[in-house]
C-alpha cells in the first residue's frame, strides 16, 4: 500500500474558491492539501477563460481570470498548501475516528479530518465527440488521451481536432503509427502555428494525410474500429483506421463525488448556510458545486462561504478549542501567520 498522505483539510478542486479556502482555514492553523484534475491551479478561471476580465471581484474594477488566480496563490503562499494535480478523487470512506480516507484515480490515499468539496462544475473530462455509437469503441480503439505511445504502434490512426493536443499528437505519433489521418472541420487551426506548419510540411511529403471535415460515423466490430466516415466539403469519404484519438476539449462532470452518499439536488450538493456543510458532517461544499435557497454561482459568494465554513471546520479539527474571531488588520497573531508582523 502506498504511503498515506495526512492533512487537516483535504480540498477537492483548486479553483478560486478552493484556493481562498486555504487562506481562511490557514488563519485558523489548519493545513490544507488540494487535489485537482487539471495540471495547474485555477479551475475554470485557468482552463476556460484565463484572459477574460472579471468585473465583480470586490476591490478590483477589472481583473483577468488568470490574474485573480495568480493573486490568490500569492495570498495563500504563507500557509504553504500542498497540491496534487492531474488526479480525480474517486473513493471516500469515513474512518472510525471520524476522519475521512479519500482515494484518487491513481490510488493515492489521503486522510483528513475535514473534506471540502470546491469542485465547481465538476471535474474536467474529455468531451465525447458527437459521433453515433462512439461509446462502443471507447477504451478499445477510441482513446481520449495518450497514456502510452506504444498503444498506437503499427495502427492506422485517425486524430480528430484542431487544437494543440490534436496537432502535437499528430506530429508525435506519426513516426509510431502505420498511418496518421488528421481530421478537422476547417483548414485553420487553434494550435500553435509552428505545429500547424510542421503538419502541412509532412502532408506535403505525404507522411500524413490531413482532411477537412467532420467524422460522422464509425465502422467496426466488438469495439474494434475498422473505418471512419468523414463528411467533407465534397461529400462523404471512408478512411480505414484501427485507432482514433478525438480531441474535442473538456467538459465538466460531477464524477465519482456523486457516489459518496451525499444528498444531491440536480447534480449540486445541498448545504446549510451557517456552515456550508453537506448531509455528511465533516464534509463541506463551497462555490459553484453547492446549493442552498438563493444560491448564486459567483466567485464572491464562494469567498464568503469559505470564511464561514472555516469556523465550522476548526471545531472539527481542534475540538474543544476556543475560536477567537480576529481581524487581519489588527491581530498580531494573524499577521504572524501571514508573515507580515512588524
Amino acid at each position: 500500500m502506498t504511503d498515506i498522505i495526512r492533512t487537516d483539510v483535504l480540498i477537492v478542486g483548486a479553483g478560486p474558491v478552493g484556493l481562498f479556502a486555504v487562506f481562511e482555514l490557514g488563519l485558523f492553523d489548519m493545513k490544507c492539501h488540494l487535489i485537482d484534475i487539471l495540471d495547474r491551479p485555477g479551475g475554470q478561471c485557468a482552463e476556460l477563460y484565463p484572459e477574460k476580465p472579471i468585473y465583480d471581484i470586490p476591490g478590483w474594477p477589472s481583473i483577468s481570470a488568470q490574474g485573480l488566480v495568480d493573486r490568490l496563490l500569492e495570498q495563500i503562499a504563507p500557509f504553504k498548501p500542498d497540491f496534487t494535480f492531474n488526479r480525480m478523487v474517486s473513493g471516500l470512506e469515513k474512518l472510525e475516528d471520524g476522519s475521512f480516507r479519500v482515494i484518487t484515480d491513481e490510488n493515492e490515499v489521503f486522510e483528513a479530518k475535514v473534506v471540502v468539496i470546491a469542485a465547481g462544475g465538476g471535474s474536467f473530462q474529455p468531451k465525447r465527440p458527437p459521433i453515433p455509437g462512439i461509446e462502443l469503441y471507447e477504451g478499445k480503439s477510441v482513446f481520449y488521451s495518450v497514456r502510452r505511445m506504444e498503444e498506437f504502434r503499427g495502427h492506422d490512426l485517425v486524430i480528430v481536432g484542431g487544437g494543440d493536443s490534436a496537432l502535437d499528437w499528430t506530429l508525435n505519433l506519426q513516426p509510431v503509427a502505420k498511418s496518421v489521418t488528421l481530421v478537422h472541420r476547417r483548414p485553420e487551426f487553434r494550435a500553435a502555428p509552428d505545429s500547424v506548419n510542421k503538419m502541412y510540411a509532412m502532408q506535403e511529403m505525404k507522411e500524413l494525410d490531413f482532411q477537412v471535415g467532420q467524422v460522422t460515423g464509425l465502422t467496426g466490430t466488438d469495439g474494434h474500429l475498422s473505418a471512419a466516415t468523414i463528411k467533407g466539403p465534397d461529400g462523404d469519404t471512408e478512411v480505414s483506421c484501427t485507432r482514433m484519438l478525438p480531441f474535442f476539449g473538456l467538459t465538466m462532470k460531477l464524477g465519482p463525488i456523486a457516489e459518496w452518499g451525499l444528498n444531491l439536488h440536480e447534480n449540486l450538493i445541498p448545504v446549510d448556510t451557517e456552515k456550508f456543510q453537506t448531509s455528511v458532517p465533516g464534509i463541506f461544499a463551497v462555490g459553484d458545486i453547492n446549493w442552498y435557497p438563493g444560491k448564486l454561482k459567483l466567485i464572491l459568494s464562494g469567498f464568503h462561504e469559505v470564511a464561514l465554513m472555516a469556523q465550522a471546520a476548526k471545531r472539527i479539527v481542534s475540538p474543544g478549542e476556543r475560536i477567537v474571531f480576529q481581524y487581519t488588520t489588527s491581530s498580531t497573531s494573524l499577521q504572524k501567520k501571514l508573515g507580515v508582523a512588524g
Binding site: P130, R185, E188, Q214, G249
Partner: peptide
C-alpha cells in the same frame, strides 16, 4: 470572428 470559429470546433454538426 476568429475566437468564435475556434469555439465552433467543439460544436455538433457545424
Amino acid at each position: 470572428e476568429a475566437m468564435e470559429e475556434d469555439m465552433l470546433d467543439f460544436a455538433y454538426d457545424v
